[in-house]
Structures are given as structure tokens and as C-alpha cells.
Simulated scan of single mutants.
Amino acid sequence: MTPRTGPAAGSTLAFVESPVQLLNVLEWAHTATPRAAQERTDSVAPPSVRTRHEAAAGPAGEPAHQTPGAYAPVPLTPGALTLVVLSPTDPMTRGQLRRMAELARNEGYQVRWEEARGGPAAPFQTIGGLTPLLRAARRIVIGDPFSRYVQLLLTITRARHLVVVDDGTATMEFISQLARGERLVRWHRRGGRPGARDIVFAPVSASARRRLTPGRRRTVEVFSSMPIEAAPDGVRITANDFGWTRSRFGPPRITKGADLVGTSLVETGVVDPDRYLEAVTSLARTHGATRYFAHRRESSDKLHRLAVETGLEVVRPDLPLELIARRGPIGRTILSFPSTVVHTLPLALAGTEVKVAVCDIDPAWLTDHASPRAQGFLSGVTGTARDVHRLSAVTAV
């Protein structure tokens, strides 16, 4: 475990709870360090990637939504970033986080692993141990503004600079809710009545939302590969072009076949499991897919059934898919349902011959418990994806 050392002056604390969040902190740090400006000719996005971000970036990569004089980016000085992993209990996620933590240490960053959910007393011990760092940090980077853990930590910090890095497609919903002044609720939970825990936690959530709103003494930056057309006044949007990933990995060896990317829409109660299995089977047969890259939240029972009934080789990646694909080998076609990867994979694989194809979610696949907003949100994820081939919803086999 990392020694409990205090942060240096002008330090940056980053809180992550998933491998993708940690990856995107590394991407952000790659662009925020002074050396990134010197190496810009090496890490600048290819033309196809820059076109991908025309809505989010201005000439020469200058971010949009920036009022002159309203935001002064603070460079990330070497050794000033500490990554705090608020470890979940899921073994798959923990394994990927361990691997990502190794990569972060190799980049020269300090990593502090917190067993934040290791028992009833763990949250109190974690928060108590982090309080001095939170109060001393100049800048806070977070990967999930919807996390209650993160929201609670935000009420402690005095940092004047806040950065939100991508936690997948949830970033799009966060920006929308922040702009409308709404309470922060994950998209697949919207439409339901708040539970008892939601009501008790409401003051903390409201406080976190205020801290994530830019003001005279606070700056807010969103570092994202998602298509963000508009942002609240004062929020700086910086485009993530996966320059760190492309500079460290690949280019990959490309195979002739197709690979299929799994989703946790069944586990979140949005899509019916039988309909999902039918769709995967049809996609695999139509496009000749042989491998199925499982989402880290997919259940073992579902994956076992999928392997038996479809004949697909189920692969549990030990790193985020963007890194797996960039390392290779990877299929010439990557098939996906609406998810974050339809936005990120074209960026990570820019300059290669890999094609990303996304399959729409048929409304008939949705469960009775799915949020009323589910179909519209998923359609928006697909419709806003660029550099991908769009497939119609597949029919049952």
C-alpha cells in the first residue's frame, strides 16, 4: 500500500472507482503536463480524430465553451498527481484497477489504494485518512460525479479547481443535468421514485452539485471523448483524443474476423436477458464474430450461457477495451451495442483499418423496469457516435 504521505503544494488528487476512470485520468494528465505541449506534434490527433471533435474543440485543439479570462488552466507539474483508488468489491473490476494502477505508477504517478468498501467501518476510515489531503489539494479530479462516495468527498475539499473525466456515456447525462440545475441521478435510474437512501443523502448530493458548478472562485473542467454540444456557462470542455493510449500501445495486429463487445444493460435491468442473447447470437452469425469481450459487470451465469448457446469465445479483458484493442490482436470489425466504446474505440484505433459497428437496441428488448428515458438515451448514444457504422436492431434468430 502507498505510504500515507501528504500532498505537495499545488498538488492534484484524482479519485477513481473504475478502470476506465483511471485510464481517462492518465489521458487527462498526458494533456495537462507541460511536456505535453512540447510533444504536441507527436500526440496530436490524426485528421479523422480532430474532425470527430469539431463540436467540442476550436482551432488548433482550443476547447470550446471557454469565456475569455474565465478559465486559466493550471499545468500539472511532475510528481504533483496522486491517484486515489476507491476500490469496489467486484473481483473483475478490482483486477483491472490493479493493472491500471501499475501503468499509472510506471508513468511516475503516486497511487493510493483504499479499501473503501471493506466493511462497515471502511468508509469512515477512508474519509478520515483522506481529509488532510482533500483540504490541502489545489485541484480535484473525479471520474464519477454520480458516486455518493465522491459527492461526500467533494463536501470536504477546499480545492478551487475541479476536473471531471469521462465515466463513459454517463458524462453526457451529467452535463445535461448540471446545465438544467437538476439533482445528479444516473440515467438508468431516472423516472423512479427516490428511495430512503436518496432522501437522506439529498443534502450531500445538492452540495456536490454546487461545487461542480463554476463560480467566481471555482473552475470546472470536463475532459471527455463524448459528444457534448453544449455545456453550462463557465464549464471548460476539453477533448480527450486518447493521445496517451496511442502513444503507449500499438498499432495492433488486425485479424480478418469480427469481435463483439458485451454490455451490462442486462445487469442494470434495462434489457431482457433472453432478448439480449438472441441479439448476440444473430450478430455473431451475421458478421462471423468469434470472440465476445465481456463487460466487467456482466454476470458469470450470463456469460456461461452465452458461451454455451452461441459458441463465442468469451474473453474477460484485464484492461479497459481501448487498451486491449490498441495492443491487439483485434478483429477488422468490432461490433457493439450502444455504449461508451462506440465513441472511444474510433479514437483509440485512429489510423488503423478497424471498423466499429453499433447495433441499435430494439424497444421490444427493454424490460418493464427500464427507465422511461432508456430508449431515448440509448438512441442518443448511437446517433451521436461518429466514425462508426450503424446497424439496424437485429431480429431474433
Results as ranks from 00 to 15, higher is better:
residue 202 A to L: 14
residue 7 P to H: 02
residue 96 Q to S: 08
residue 392 S to Y: 03
residue 202 A to I: 02
residue 331 G to N: 07
residue 31 T to Y: 11
residue 119 G to P: 01
residue 351 G to T: 09
residue 210 R to G: 01
residue 272 D to N: 14
residue 46 P to K: 01
residue 349 L to A: 02
residue 138 R to G: 15
residue 284 A to P: 05
residue 155 T to A: 07
residue 82 T to P: 04
residue 226 M to F: 04
residue 331 G to Y: 09
residue 196 A to S: 09
residue 280 V to I: 15
residue 5 T to F: 02
residue 182 E to I: 01
residue 352 T to A: 07
residue 41 T to P: 00
residue 132 P to I: 11
residue 19 P to Q: 01
residue 290 T to M: 10
residue 29 A to P: 04
residue 277 L to M: 14
residue 192 G to Q: 13
residue 244 W to F: 11
residue 268 T to F: 10
residue 2 T to K: 02
residue 123 P to W: 03
residue 253 R to T: 07
residue 136 A to I: 04
residue 205 S to W: 02
residue 109 Y to N: 14
residue 269 G to I: 01
residue 318 D to K: 13
residue 103 L to G: 03
residue 357 A to T: 14
residue 94 R to Y: 11
residue 163 V to G: 06
residue 209 R to N: 02
residue 65 H to F: 14
residue 92 M to G: 10
residue 189 R to E: 14
residue 394 V to A: 11
residue 202 A to N: 05
residue 166 D to Q: 07
residue 45 A to S: 11
residue 220 V to D: 08
residue 125 Q to A: 15
residue 136 A to C: 05
residue 48 S to L: 08
residue 262 G to P: 05
residue 373 R to C: 09
residue 317 P to G: 14
residue 187 W to S: 06
residue 168 G to H: 03
residue 44 V to F: 08
residue 367 T to H: 07
residue 344 T to C: 02
residue 48 S to W: 01
residue 89 T to W: 02
residue 393 A to F: 10
residue 304 H to W: 12
residue 220 V to K: 00
residue 379 S to W: 05
residue 113 W to E: 14
residue 248 R to Q: 13
residue 3 P to M: 01
residue 199 I to S: 10
residue 394 V to P: 14
residue 40 R to A: 15
residue 351 G to D: 11
residue 184 L to A: 11
residue 254 I to K: 00
residue 296 R to Q: 05
residue 75 P to D: 06
residue 310 T to Q: 04
residue 38 Q to T: 12
residue 91 P to H: 01
